[in-house]
Every structure is written in structure tokens, then in C-alpha cells.
Amino acid sequence: AQGASSEQANNSDSATIGTDTATERLTRLLADLSTFRADVRQLITESSGGVLEESDILFMLKRPHGFYWETLSPFPELIVTNGDTLWNYQPDLLQLSIEDWNPDESELAAQLLGGETAAIAEEYDIEAVQVATNDWEFVLRPLDQASLYQRVVLYFVDDLLESILLINTNGQRTLWEFFNRQVNEPIADTTFNFTAPDDDFLDVIDNRADNTHETDQL
């Protein structure tokens, strides 16, 4: 099913306000999320519209840099960072890769979810489209052509993030729909620190600059 916000929704009649207000509005809506937890339904479609994959993901966020993205199906994979280190753990493959994490280099989607709208506003034109009293659609279009995306659309209902649609330059689309959302509920910091299981067969790829220090499971 196409995302809640389809491009066909004509923007002409809905109130479009100046881009700076749009950025401020988007900033405020995202900034309200000091912690966020949701079940994410991900739908990836390829350029001709065929479904590549549907996945279920558990997502947790804690400002400023706590980020937890666990794919539950169709295969298990955890990506988690505390802002310093990024872990990518694939339990069925018994593979763990660890790398230093620089939040500034994070990918657009992570920046969006992390609420770093200032950085985004430098690279994207942000247009706000009011769909209903508290329902807003933000359409991001890259300012320069070297972007990875043609367009990114965030959709808020009752001021709460409902979905994000990412349209790549090669036509592939990723739609994230957020369910069972919990905003600003307490989430422990330890959630964003990964401890490797004690398993001799675990294949650990430690790419950290200073990876001489103990890996977690030793």
C-alpha cells in the first residue's frame, strides 16, 4: 500500500508556509521527541514499483545520540549506537561488527530521526504542507544534485510522526510507518550499549580506530 502521504495529494490548495517556518516547524515537531519508541513497518519497493522487501523493526531513540534499530523479520539484525560506537549484530550469522560512530556523518534518515534539522536544512529545501489542523506533511527536496534522494516526505498526524518516505535517485523507495508509538517515556541508556554474547563462534569485526581495548565479551 502506498504510504499515508501520497505525492498525488495536491499541494496547491493546502496552506504552504515559507520554508524557514517549515524548517522551524519540522524542528519543533522532531525536537519534541526526547525519547521515541515505535514498531516500524518497513516497505521497500524497487524502481518499477515491485516490492523488494517488507520488514518489521523495533525502533528506539534517545536524544542526543541514542539510536536502536532492530530488524525482527524477515531476518534478525540489530544496529545500535550510543553516539560513540556503532554495533551491527546479526545473530543468525553469528556476526558482529563494531565501528567508531560520528553522529555528524550519519545518514539522512538517522539525522532526521535524530532531529538534526539544522544540518538537513542546509542540504534540502523543506516545504511544509498542512493536510489538516494538526496533520502536516514535510517534503524535502535536495538542493544539490549529488544527493542520494530525489525526495523525502515526513508525515505527522496530531503532531506525532506517522511515516517517512525516502525516494532514492535510482527510484527505489523506502516507506517507514510508525506504530505503537511511545513519546518521551523513559528509556535506559544501557539500551544503546551493546554487549556481545559470550559465544566462541561469534565472528567479531572490530573496525574501531583504537580496537586494542577489550571487546565487550572478553
Binding site: E77, L148, L166, N170, G171, Q172
Partner: peptide
Amino acid sequence: TFNVGATQIDGRPGEVQIVQQ
């Protein structure tokens, strides 16, 4: 994962097209 590095390769005898994000 996380919409990184999307690449599509379409191949026919004698010609292959690669479109990277």
C-alpha cells in the same frame, strides 16, 4: 539496512545497466 547503498543491476546478453543510489 537503513536504506544505504541501493543498487539495481539489469542485465541482458551483451549489455548491463547499473544504477547506484
